[in-house]
Write a protein that binds this DNA or RNA. Structure first.
Length: 614
DNA sequence: ACTCCGTGAC
């Protein structure tokens, strides 16, 4: 207690005419003082001592004071103490409930937040207000729990309570995080009445951006700018990530311009999203510039840069960056290790990759999870160690979604190395778990056909048709200047004059001169021009492996020249591919940047949304 | 009086 403060308290005279007694006055003053101190406290020690004073002075049943105390503990992330205080409250009010719920939200325990809300609902003594609903929707969006969220939304509507901007924003954010963009949009549209602010616009832009609908995100950003309000750092980071998923460097650059104009360049989140955008849009050099300008690096900025290098086939540099980060005592997390393993996988550093997998728990305190194992299975499979990959895959327990990636990786490995047994096993697992069903059927059918099991192959095709599984046509595109050109798998109509074939042969020749005989990329390039006796689906698969190269050739021959050609592909780069592009650069004497948009292509149901692009 | 919403690496 502050002694000077107590000494300075002048007590009112003890007369019956005075409305409060000396004792009351002391109480009121000390309560105000304690509450004031509580709001300032940033140390557990101070809050603890204030708590004992509060209890000693008999404020244990004073809801307002205890609410403040709960909040102080919530701010110190001492949720258990906050919870205990709350549980002992004789009369918790709506603020007490909401404070505890939001406390569990803030400490990453949304499940507990929801269970407290449920308790509040069953208790019935206190009705939730708009603050409570906003917190609860936030918990649902953290859990991506649409079922509970919807029922609470219904409860809110039934209560007849008018939604305010904050509640609606958290609601639309929740629907966005649960991948229900249409409902999110309906909530956004309904907000014309209660007023939208930057947060609600940002929530809607984010909902589009995080659900692979970058065009709508950018469109909405344009509409927002028409309102003459200024975007803030939250909105900019979201728009930039929409540009990344679209792979449109021009738009990304415009967004960068808005960032500079608004003075948000030094914001870390914005800078990291710019870094990621440049990397995904093919400009590693710009990504690096952004990276070196960041003054105080975090695990996320390092991870983004490691991923960027990995995607561009610069495995050694990515690993170097990782070691540098560890030396700076920035603790890597599971995403960082995923980046490291990706780097090894994309650059053929198999031994290094296995080393990182085996030592990451001990050295970096990150226990490998199914995603890390999937990455290593992919790496082993890519470099011909298919049996090891299969053996590893069998030991991993996965859910359906991750299983699709795991067995999908093994499927490609089996296909790449002509292992019918592995293709069969992987396809069956995919079909059984109802994941990537179409591509699994195609691969399985092709595997049977190759092995001579025509009857199996035929019956599978029938099964596929009955199930309504139609294979999406693979497609690639390139962006030159501000135009986008699309190429569909199996479509060689663009090659009327045979120039692509000639270009491919020239490339093959140069690759051979460089000693890349029979390497995966050169042989594949040639195969794209000579499918003669291959059946329709197998041909489509081959072309889908090559279409970015076809696109490139087409672009070189028929399209206006520019300083940079960027290629979107749905392949990961191996060392050979990288080498191929270097050779192409020499041929055309132009910078060629390759990018990887795996994320954009692959969705949970295995569908490809390339067509949304047009 | 105290309590609420939106951003970056996978």
């Amino acid at each position: 207690m502050n002694k000077r403060f107590l000494q300075n308290v002048r007590f009112a005279p003890a007369s019956s005419s005075f409305p409060i007694s000396q004792n009351d006055f002391f109480h009121l003053k000390s309560k105000a003082f304690l509450v004031h101190k509580l709001s300032e406290s940033t140390h557990l020690f101070l809050t603890n001592s204030l708590k004992s004073s509060i209890l000693k002075l008999g404020f244990a049943s004073d809801t307002f004071t205890i609410n403040r105390l709960i909040n102080s503990y919530v701010k110190l992330r001492e949720t258990n103490t906050a919870r205990k205080l709350f549980d002992e409250m004789p009369e918790p009010n709506v603020v007490s409930w909401t404070s505890v719920i939001s406390g569990f939200n803030d400490t990453g325990q949304p499940q507990t937040a929801l269970s407290i809300f449920q308790q509040m609902h069953e208790d019935k003594s206190v009705a939730p207000n708009e603050f409570t609903y906003a917190s609860v929707f936030k918990a649902c969006s953290a859990l991506a729990e649409p079922r509970i969220g919807k029922s609470i939304h219904a409860r809110l509507e039934m209560s007849g309570r008018r939604s305010n901007t904050v509640v609606s924003s958290s609601l639309l954010d929740m629907y966005g995080k649960c991948n229900d963009v249409e409902t999110a949009r309906r909530v956004f549209d309904s907000m014309i009445g209660c007023g939208r602010n930057v947060v609600s616009w940002t929530s809607m832009i984010t909902a589009y951006a995080q659900n692979a609908r970058g065009h709508e995100a950018v469109q909405l950003f344009r509409s927002f700018n028409a309102t003459f309000e200024r975007p803030n750092q939250f909105m900019l980071a979201s728009v930039i990530s929409a540009c990344s998923s679209l792979g449109r460097l021009q738009w990304g650059r415009v967004a960068h311009g808005v960032v500079t104009h608004g003075g948000y360049e030094r914001n870390h989140v914005v800078a990291t999203s710019l870094l990621d955008m440049y990397a995904k849009c093919g400009s590693l050099s710009c990504a690096e510039k952004i990276f070196w300008r960041i003054c105080c690096h975090s695990v996320i900025s390092y991870t983004s840069m490691i991923m960027a290098k990995a995607k561009h086939g610069l495995g050694e540099e990515a690993l170097q960056l990782f070691e540098e980060m560890v030396a700076k005592r920035i603790k890597p997390n599971y995403v960082t290790l995923l980046g490291v393993l990706h780097a090894c996988s994309h650059s053929g550093l198999v031994t290094e990759g296995l080393g990182y997998l085996n030592s990451m728990a001990e050295k970096h305190g990150v226990v490998p999870d199914p995603r890390h194992y999937t990455c290593v299975v992919d790496m082993l499979g890519r470099f011909g160690r298919v049996d090891e990959a299969y053996a590893l895959a069998k030991t991993i327990e996965v859910g359906a979604e991750q299983g699709a990636l795991l067995w999908g990786a093994l499927l490609s490995a089996g296909r790449l190395h002509g292992r019918v047994d592995i293709v069969g096993e992987a396809s069956k697992r995919l079909i059984q778990s109802n994941q990537q069903v179409t591509s699994a059927y195609v691969a399985l059918s092709n595997a049977y056909a190759l092995a001579g099991g025509w009857e199996d192959s035929e019956s599978l095709r029938l099964e596929m048709k009955r199930g309504g599984n139609v294979k999406e046509r693979a497609c690639s595109w390139i962006e030159i200047k501000d135009s986008v050109y699309a190429f569909h798998a199996g479509d060689l109509s663009c090659d009327e004059s045979g120039e692509i074939v000639r270009f491919m042969k020239e490339l093959e020749k140069r690759m051979k001169e460089r000693g890349h005989r029979g390497g995966s990329s050169s042989s594949m390039i040639i195969s794209s021009s000579v499918f003669v006796d291959v059946d329709e689906e197998a041909k489509e698969e081959i072309v889908s492996l090559h279409c970015e190269r076809l696109a490139l050739a087409f672009g070189l021959i028929h399209l206006p020249s520019g300083p940079t050609i960027r290629i979107m592909n749905n392949l990961r780069m191996c060392r050979d591919c990288h080498e191929a592009f270097k050779v192409i650069s020499e041929i055309v004497e132009r910078e060629i940047v390759v990018r990887d948009v795996n994320r954009f292509h692959c969705f949970k149901d295995g569908s490809c949304t390339c067509r949304d692009f047009w």
